[in-house]
């Protein structure tokens, strides 16, 4: 039987969605509370790692085409770079300029471009940590053969 016992599998099915929503909560509220892109990205990667641990890595169909997570990682870091360059095009010409309207302090939609940076940094961190985890699995397979 692949993976761990029945108890771990069933509980993982119930908990993985909650872990994913919690990671999104940390990322979106990154400019109001501690946390932000990096911490939320680690929690989101944790929800996928939980599924891989419980069911075995063939379950997500990611080992055969590991280009999936690599693609998301590269796209996200490209978007972050475009957002940073957009500061050069608008307003005073400064890299990483915050040229959006700021809003009021304490609301969910405020602080200009910081939530956008947080979201894309979160996607980037989640994809890269998942890539590192899958790479460790593949590396261990090659050693043992």
């Amino acid at each position: 039987m692949k993976g761990m016992t029945l108890i771990v599998k069933k509980t993982t099915q119930l908990i993985a969605g909650m872990v994913f929503m919690y990671g999104i909560y940390i990322i979106v509220h990154g400019h109001l509370t501690p946390g932000g892109g990096f911490a939320g990205g680690v929690v989101i990667a944790g929800s996928f790692i939980l599924l891989i641990l419980a069911f075995g890595s063939d379950f997500l169909n990611l080992v055969k085409e590991e280009s999936g997570s690599t693609l998301y990682e590269n796209l996200a870091i490209l978007v972050v770079l475009f957002l940073a360059v957009s500061g050069l095009l608008f307003g005073t010409r400064v890299f990483f300029l915050n040229w959006f309207p700021k809003g009021t302090v304490g609301q969910l939609v405020s602080a200009g471009m910081l939530p956008l940076y947080n979201i894309f940094v979160g996607i980037e961190v989640a994809a890269s940590i998942l890539t590192i985890f899958l790479a460790l699995i593949i590396f261990k397979e090659e050693i043992s053969e």
Binding site: K10, T12, Q13, L14, A16, G17, F20, M21, I24, Y25, V28, L51, L108
Partner: peptide, 18 residues
């Protein structure tokens, strides 16, 4: 924001649910 996040969550995690 919550509706968008739940949409992403339901697209990814429904096939693992009971």
């Amino acid at each position: 924001v919550g509706a968008v996040a739940s949409l992403i969550c339901s697209l990814i995690f429904t096939r693992f649910f009971i």
